[in-house]
Amino acid sequence: MPHDDHDHPHALLPPEPALRVKALETILTRKGLIDPAALDEIIDTYQNKIGPQNGAHVVAKAWSDPDFKAALLEDATSVVADLGYYGRQGEHMVVVENTPEQHNMVVCTLCSCYPWPLLGIPPGWYKSDAYRARAVREPRKVLAEFGVTLPEDTSVRVWDSTAEIRYLVLPMRPEGSEGLSEEELAALVIRDSMIGTGLPKVPS
């Protein structure tokens, strides 16, 4: 129904799916199955507290501290939990390291499994059919569309996430980053470099 924007006789009706979500919330709250305050807290957490800065912290620490890196590659779940990043959905995290021989790239072909505690909510393209279908089939072509061109002799390995196992790519430390502090290093680690569809920034 067309709406006259400058003259609302009544409150603006939310879109259909919003009404349906409100209905679910009302029913579940009345039954004591959810607490509206907890919903606000979850939204605040994912909107403001959890995001790629967490993963960047982990990567920068791995670049700076060989022991940390070794432990991270061995058992990422417990190592990142020590930093306060743990999977609220009980998932395991696995860190895969990029080397001159192998570039890693992460996808979830089934739905959109993603290392939430380290990267937050996935971007739209990660959830799209196009990426999910093509990442496995033609990874180099997909990488090229992201502006990533790898040397011919670097192989590409694609990791398919599941509800239980979420992957994070440990990118190679960029050249010219010697002597940078952990914080300065973290600023180089862009989100896509931890999904494998990008590379870290090179220090200017």
């Binding site: 919003a18 979500v21 409100k22 679910l24 579940l28 907890a38 919903l39 994912y46 609220r88």
Partner: peptide, 18 residues
């Protein structure tokens, strides 16, 4: 992060139930 408020709400309801 969430393009629409209801995206955030349905996400939160699901995570809360889990």
């Amino acid at each position: 992060i969430f393009a629409e408020p209801w995206h955030a709400q349905v996400f939160a309801v699901t995570v809360a139930l889990n």
